[in-house]
Design a protein around this nucleic acid. Structure first.
Lengths: 198, 198
DNA sequence: GACTGAAGCGGAGCGCCGCTCCAGTTAATT
DNA sequence: AATTAACTGGAGCGGCGCTCCGCTTCAGTC
């Protein structure tokens, strides 16, 4: 509970009161702008929406990734914490995995361009990539291991590969009725299941 | 053989000789630059590499997508034509589908950032997306149908969704040894297989 | 309340990019 | 040789990321 700060990004603690206030203002503005224009929105716009200068935004969040992680921090955290809970409550490890992936996918597809940013090969987002991985990879690994252990799915799948695959499947135009990443992810999970050895 | 021109993009025919020459020069320069810097490379750079002005590039290829499609035209065509051939030669329709997807994936992953561009939600690449779909979707549909017909895979999968999924899985950093899209695509295909109804 | 130095602020400025536009050049035709 | 339609190139505009530094404001001190 004490150790916050995702990536060297120190929150308000010990800072001057105006700085704390500004940090919050920027965060709120960024959240609004991200929601309407995606996480690629110009920093200028976020700054002016917050009523501050660009310098202020950049001081609090040196890279765009820092800003994005700060905005979505809570939701990432929730997703991470849901892992063990689901594993404890679900009917089977495979079911837990399925439900957790659902959660993750919901998160990705409801944020414009977030999945795109995550997988982007521009290094503007490298820190974001890293943060997601640090936080969620262990959770995914735990679920995967449990499902292998129980014999629900075949062994050999790397958590990193699975998570990237899921992230990748969520990339792209957000509102194309012909494309629903969930269907493909279901297919992927079906492929993961242990072929019953009769 | 007569009808070329992917997207309203008329090739050299009937143009002035200097224009024809320039078109080829630009195409060659673009191919080189794409190979080294990806399909996102600045138009300025392509122009200067070709020794022409930007205006020239833009006149021959009004959008970036036009340039990209022109550069990869042959390979897309090959891929499209391979579909029926594979279907005729392979052991089973599913095998043909597998091999065709392999071909497609190889094409995508060997071109820096091509998959990224394909799925990008920026509309700079909309025409590229369209061209790929126009040319390859029918082929994929044919293979898919055949595999359904033969009972190899379950029905109900939309060709569009499958192709986008495959494209999406190829997105991202090109040289991460931890991530091989092929493994996930194999998983996807496994999920597609008809569950033997015992 | 006045003083002060450090922390914070903002936006002008630089470089890079996509894309347009038009005065000048060149190839084809007569 | 003259004509003209086609073609050319790059200056120029607007937008963006990011930095840098003179100015402002806060928070302790007396």
């Amino acid at each position: 509970m004490a150790a916050e700060s995702p990536a060297g990004q120190s929150p308000s603690r010990g800072k001057r009161s105006d700085a704390q206030r500004n940090r919050q203002t920027v965060l709120a503005a960024a959240a609004e702008v991200f929601a309407t224009s995606g996480v690629d929105a110009p920093i200028r716009r976020i700054a002016s929406r917050a009523g501050v200068g660009m310098g202020t935004v950049y001081r609090h969040f040196p890279t765009r990734a820092d800003l994005v992680t700060a905005v979505y921090h809570h939701q990432i955290e929730e997703c991470a914490e849901a892992g063990p809970t689901l594993l404890a409550d679900a009917d089977s490890p495979l079911d837990a995995l399925r439900q957790w992936i659902d959660l993750f996918v919901d998160f990705l597809v409801t944020k414009h361009g977030l999945a795109d940013a995550l997988q982007s090969d521009s290094d503007r987002f490298a820190a974001l990539h890293t943060y997601f991985l640090d936080r969620l990879l262990p959770v995914c690994a735990q679920l995967l291991d449990a499902a292998v252990e129980s014999g629900d799915i075949r062994p050999g799948t790397q958590p990193y590969e699975l998570m990237r695959g899921i992230g990748n499947l969520c990339v792209g135009r957000d509102d194309d009725p012909r494309y629903d990443p969930r269907r493909l992810i279901a297919l992927l999970l079906a492929g993961l299941r242990q072929p019953r050895t009769p």
